[in-house]
C-alpha cells in the first residue's frame, strides 16, 4: 500500500540522512507502476525489467534533487518515461519511429471511426483476452509522442499538469496529443468493437424485421 505523503517525506529525509536501506521501502509501492510505464512504451519484458531497475537506481542517485512540490510517484514516472524514451531511441530501426517527429503541424487524420450499427459494447467483449491483446497492439502502433501521453493520462491516470511535467511539455499539448491518441485508438479498435451479426438474416444478408 502506498505510504502517505508525510510518511514518504519522512522516509526520504531519513534516506538522505544515511539510512539508505529504507529506499527499498520507499519504492516498493511503485515498482509495478515503473515497470508498466516502460513496458507499455517498449512492449518488451526484458527491456522493461532492465529499464525499471535503472530507473530505481537513478532515482536513488538523484533523490536529493526530488522536490516535495510534485508527488514522489510522478517524479518516478518522469524518470521512467525518460528511460523508456532513451531505450526507444536506441531500439529504433524504422526512421518514421522518430520520437521528435513533429506531427502537431500536420493535417493528420484524427477523426474517429463511425460505427453505424453499433449499440453498446457488451461487457463480455471487453473482458475477452483477445480484446486486451488488440488494445495492447493498438497502443503499440501509436507514434511514441501520442503513446506516452496516453500511458500517463489513461493508464497511470496522472492529471494533466502531472503529465505535462513528466513529459516536459505544456498542458495544451497534453490535451491535443491525448485527444489524437484516443481518436487513433478508437479508429484502430473500432472493427473489433462491432456487435456480433444479427442472428436472424434473410437471403443475401437482408435483416428480417
Amino acid at each position: 500500500m502506498p505510504a502517505t505523503v508525510e510518511q514518504e517525506k519522512d522516509l526520504i529525509a531519513r534516506i538522505l540522512a544515511g539510512e539508505v536501506n529504507l529506499f527499498h521501502e520507499l519504492v516498493r509501492p511503485y515498482e509495478k507502476l515503473v515497470y508498466v510505464t516502460i513496458f507499455t512504451m517498449l512492449r518488451n519484458e526484458t527491456e522493461a525489467e532492465d529499464g525499471a531497475q535503472e530507473v530505481m537506481i537513478n532515482a536513488f542517485r538523484h533523490l536529493k534533487n526530488f522536490r516535495g512540490d510534485a508527488k514522489f510517484s510522478t517524479w518516478l514516472v518522469t524518470i521512467a518515461m525518460n528511460e523508456a524514451r532513451q531505450r526507444l531511441r536506441r531500439a529504433r530501426t524504422a526512421p518514421h519511429e522518430s520520437l521528435d517527429e513533429d506531427m502537431e503541424g500536420k493535417e493528420g487524420d484524427f477523426t474517429p471511426a463511425v460505427l453505424t450499427d453499433w449499440r453498446e459494447i457488451p461487457s463480455e467483449v471487453l473482458e475477452k483476452k483477445e480484446m486486451r491483446e488488440k488494445l495492447r497492439a493498438a497502443v503499440a502502433q501509436l507514434p511514441p509522442i501520442y503513446r506516452e501521453v496516453l500511458v500517463l493520462r489513461d493508464l497511470e491516470e496522472l492529471n494533466q499538469e502531472e503529465t505535462a511535467a513528466a513529459l516536459g511539455i505544456n498542458v495544451t499539448l497534453v490535451k491535443v496529443r491525448l485527444h489524437r491518441a484516443r481518436m487513433m485508438l478508437q479508429k484502430l479498435l473500432a472493427p473489433y468493437l462491432r456487435p456480433p451479426a444479427p442472428a436472424k438474416k434473410g437471403f443475401f444478408g437482408r435483416i428480417v424485421p
Binding site: A113, W118, L193
Partner: peptide
C-alpha cells in the same frame, strides 16, 4: 463514437 471511446479508456485503465 463516444461510448466506444469511453469503453476503450476503461479497458486501457484496466490494463
Amino acid at each position: 463514437i463516444l461510448d466506444s471511446t469511453r469503453n476503450i479508456l476503461v479497458l486501457t485503465a484496466d490494463d
